[in-house]
């Protein structure tokens, strides 16, 4: 799809943005029940390695590897979710962090999947973008339905007061496990897509920083509504591209405007700053995170804002 429309570069950017959107939704589901996971990169790794084993070692087509990868990641999610039920807050963060670390160590030491050499020459999936174009609207639809359903409300109530939710008859244990497993499954799908687009991965591909980035997508975009993960993942993934474009515009400014004292320094600083590579991206992420926590601790989009826009519909629903 879109073969004639997009050049390779744009295509690649969109694919990574799309995979990040899926990863952001994988964080959003457990977060809806109040579980903050730093281990979504670990579940992506489970999905990615499982899918790659299916396609490379067992010769299955990509779609089968994709489904098995997501399924196995979901099962691992439920298994990890059991101990996660008993703990909250910072301890859950540490548990999921530890899980992510364990997955990395296994990937590093298991020679069957390449060990330290990495998993090489994974068959390239030409249709990654097509998968994303189907998967992302499906996810948005599902979470839109969830937000307006009783199950979604039950998840919100667990997020807001777990004890009160349990006493009101909501099966907190099963709901949290379900959310954790579903989130892991979605992460597994993202990982399977990633592996067959990048065609190479090793133990450090799905590292802890990736888990932190996934968390940031939702924190920046807003975790109280299903649009938040989409917005946050797109914003943070495409931000380097915006800044790169800004730099190109900056270069269009005539030099004669810039060869006196304050202007030339400012120009040089901006020119240097907008030159994006990995380390600097993290600095910018850090700044954004700090600014967000001060100005909009609930993220760019909140459910209250969206509610205000849709008052007529609310009126009819209750009328």
């Amino acid at each position: 799809m879109f073969d004639g429309l997009l050049d390779g570069y744009t295509r690649s950017i969109l694919i990574f943005a799309g995979i990040n959107v899926v990863a952001a939704y994988s964080f959003y589901v457990p977060f809806k029940t109040g579980q903050v996971s730093l281990g979504q990169a670990g579940f992506m790794a489970v999905g990615a390695y499982t899918a790659a084993i299916m396609t490379q070692k067992f010769g299955l087509p990509f779609w089968a590897g994709f489904l098995v990868g997501g399924f196995i990641a979901g099962i691992v999610g439920v298994v990890v979710g059991f101990p996660a039920l008993r703990i909250k807050g910072i301890y859950l963060l540490l548990l999921t962090l530890g899980f992510s670390e364990i997955v990395q160590v296994i990937a590093l030491s298991w020679d069957y999947v390449g060990g330290a050499q990495g998993f090489r020459q994974i068959a390239f999936n030409r249709y990654t973008l097509d998968y994303l174009v189907v998967l992302i609207p499906l996810l948005i639809w599902f979470f839109a339905r969830l937000e307006r359903s009783s199950l979604g409300r039950a998840m919100d109530s667990i997020h807001q007061d777990e004890t009160a939710a349990e006493v009101m008859g909501i099966d907190v244990v099963r709901t949290k496990l379900f959310a954790f497993g579903l989130g892991a499954m979605i992460a597994g799908f993202a990982g399977a897509l990633y592996a067959h687009h990048a065609t190479f991965m090793d133990s450090s591909t799905f590292n802890i920083m990736m888990g932190v980035e996934i968390l940031m997508f939702v924190v920046v975009g807003g975790g109280s509504t299903y649009w938040g993960p989409l917005l946050g993942a797109l914003f943070l993934t495409l931000l380097p591209e915006f800044l790169r474009t800004l730099r190109e515009w900056l270069e269009l400014v005539p030099v004669s405007w810039m060869n006196f004292f304050p202007a030339n320094r400012v120009y040089d600083f901006l020119h240097e700053f907008l030159d994006f590579e990995n380390a600097k991206r993290l600095i910018v992420y850090g700044i954004i995170l700090i600014v967000m926590m001060i100005l909009r601790p609930d993220g760019m989009l909140t459910r209250d804002q969206l509610r205000r826009f849709s008052l007529p519909r609310l009126g009819r629903r209750h009328g």
Binding site: S150, L151, R153, A154, S157, A165, M168, G169, I170, D171
Partner: peptide
């Protein structure tokens, strides 16, 4: 209030 209803219908 609908949270209270949840356990009966779901």
């Amino acid at each position: 209030v609908m949270i209270g209803e949840h356990c009966r219908y779901y």
